[in-house]
Design a protein around this nucleic acid. Structure first.
Lengths: 341, 341
DNA sequence: TTGTAGGCGTTATCAT
DNA sequence: ATGATAACGCCTACAA
């Protein structure tokens, strides 16, 4: 195997100096057109390729960004990555992907590692477990832009792109009310987490704005599984006054509920309406497509990438930017009564 | 912002030389334990972090690998990536993700770019459009390991990890036969592509081994959409002798077929059995879960990563390795008759 | 056991 | 318009 050709090889070939070659390759204005042409030609002939590692060492910019998230193979996250990649690749950045598996110590290691790798920025959706912020402040201390997406920590200097969960829940609930539903239940996951608190709050707000009393019995917790949805629906329907609609904070919960409701002979959406959250692909594939709040992951990824690019461009100035995306409600059969169509 | 601390800072601090520091940090056996301890301590104190870019330039190894695929946000691909990442991260490698969008020229650019970035290897699932191999042979010419996954090109020196589509189709068809089905149709996508040819072949083989005549009318092409599945099912069911089972080369096709069959009053699986291909998440979420051939993307990713590691370890020796994974048939309600349970 | 010196490939700052 | 030189941070013969 032949050694890689460097600018020195080109220089030798043309009896000029490496510096000139470098300038020619970088289209420096004070290099004669002739020399440039010559350099380009021999570069091509010798199959010369720039060594980005050397450039990185010299410039201090690796042109790599790190993306840290719990698991890559979830529709939401993989779509965010897609957005990031599509925005950053044209700008010459490569995207390094890492998974925390929701483990705090893994996250700490990863961030350290990315810093060692001299990434020009870190985009992160923190793990559930993460409680300390030291590894994150470290990033900013090194003057590396830190952008949170979806799940954020409040850190001075860190930017973020998140979803307006409150608004999403509000829209969903309002939609159910517009369908004529008055006894609307809410399935949630873990009220210790901010996003679920916000969804609950949005739900409550919509109710109150429409003069509907909040009924604590109508709020029910579940795991993010179908069976949990089935169980929860069962409980709800056995209440003295069962609900006539469900806004679920998760799509699988909505799915489970629908399965149970069908089982007990309810007709959806005529007797009962259901709306989920996340707009997972399967919601539209169902025989009875499920309405759901879309989290616009692609836009979130692109936006996070753009925020990063702004940070990079504005050099030393530390601009902290917090973008909140408005969710879209995808209305499908599970909540659209015929007479409203 | 303070400058990054380097081994020189540590050296100065201890009145020793950078070389010694380097050796101490790398646990070189001929450095006194005392010095090591001292170096480690000051390294920690000064918050020293290795600069992997400098290491990369020096060693010629970036500890980055590039992954090239059509789109990252497809369940299959994102799960492959997860496998790759989980296998490579513990070995100190970072994974750079890129998308070709199924465009050949994008793929060419990306590969070039990854080469410039000095990746230590490239794992690729080629785009549909790719017809030339020049960019791929380039990789091997630079002595960079090239591993194909799922979609491969036959290139001397390139390794691959693929799925045995033939066997998957064979298993699915055989299963349908075991359920008592005799008039089995096959929905396919694009017979210009090898994987679909192989699935058709496996289907045929199973038929012939069980003495069932192949009926060309039973093979029907479709786009990878639900509506296409519905249309195709419609056509099949209007044949003089309609089939009693469908093996679809895609899950969405199976889904569409099921929707149509239910519509015309067929009971699944009693009257009619359906098996899909890919084991997309939604197949198990359906009210009527759909049997499907699993492509074991996680294993594929891990295997591809392992093949890469082997290549790297065995230095100059060029081992070309072609792994073919055996698919698993996930049997669910859509094809499991009660009397066979 | 530790120091010296050179180089990995590139670019930026001086000169010329 | 081009050349010479140093530097980015690290590692490693070779010396001592």
């Amino acid at each position: 195997m032949k050694k890689k050709t460097t600018i020195y090889d080109i220089a030798k070939e043309l009896n000029i100096t490496a510096a000139t070659v470098s300038r020619a390759l970088n289209d420096n204005p004070r290099i004669s057109a002739d020399t440039k042409k010559l350099v380009m030609a021999t570069a091509k002939r010798l199959n010369y390729k720039q060594n980005r590692v050397a450039q990185a060492l010299k410039s201090g910019k690796s042109k790599n960004v790190g993306v840290v998230l719990p698991y890559i193979n979830r529709n939401f996250f993989s779509t965010v990555i897609r957005g990031i990649e599509e925005e950053l690749n044209p700008k010459g950045y490569n995207v390094i992907i890492t998974q925390t598996h929701e483990k705090a110590n893994k996250e700490i290691d990863i961030v350290q590692n990315l810093l060692n790798a001299q990434v020009d920025g870190i985009l992160i959706s923190v793990s559930r477990q993460t409680n300390s912020n030291d590894h994150l402040t470290q990033v900013l201390k090194k003057n590396v832009p830190l952008i949170f997406f979806d799940r954020k920590k409040d850190i001075k200097g860190g930017s973020s792109v998140t979803l307006d969960d409150f608004q999403g829940a509000y829209k969903a609930t309002q939609h159910l009310i517009a369908q004529g539903c008055t006894k609307i239940a809410h399935m949630t996951i873990d009220l210790a987490l901010l996003i679920y608190q916000n969804r609950l709050a949005g739900y409550k707000q919509a109710l109150s704005e429409h003069g509907i009393d909040f009924n604590p019995d109508y709020v029910i917790g579940l795991q993010s599984e179908i069976v949990a949805g089935i169980d929860a629906a069962k409980k709800l329907m056995s209440l003295p006054e069962p609900p006539d609609a469900i806004f679920s904070a998760t799509d699988l919960g909505a799915l489970g509920a629908i399965q149970y409701l069908k089982e007990i002979g309810k007709t959806i959406p005529d007797d009962f309406c259901v709306v989920g959250f996340s707009n997972e692909p399967f919601t539209q594939f169902m025989e009875l497509p499920i309405s759901s709040v879309d989290q616009s992951p692609l836009l979130m990824g692109k936006t996070a990438a753009k925020v990063f690019l702004e940070q990079i461009d504005s050099d030393d100035v530390k601009i902290e930017k917090n973008v909140v995306l408005s969710p879209t409600l995808e209305i499908r059969k599970s909540s659209l009564k015929r007479d409203n169509q």
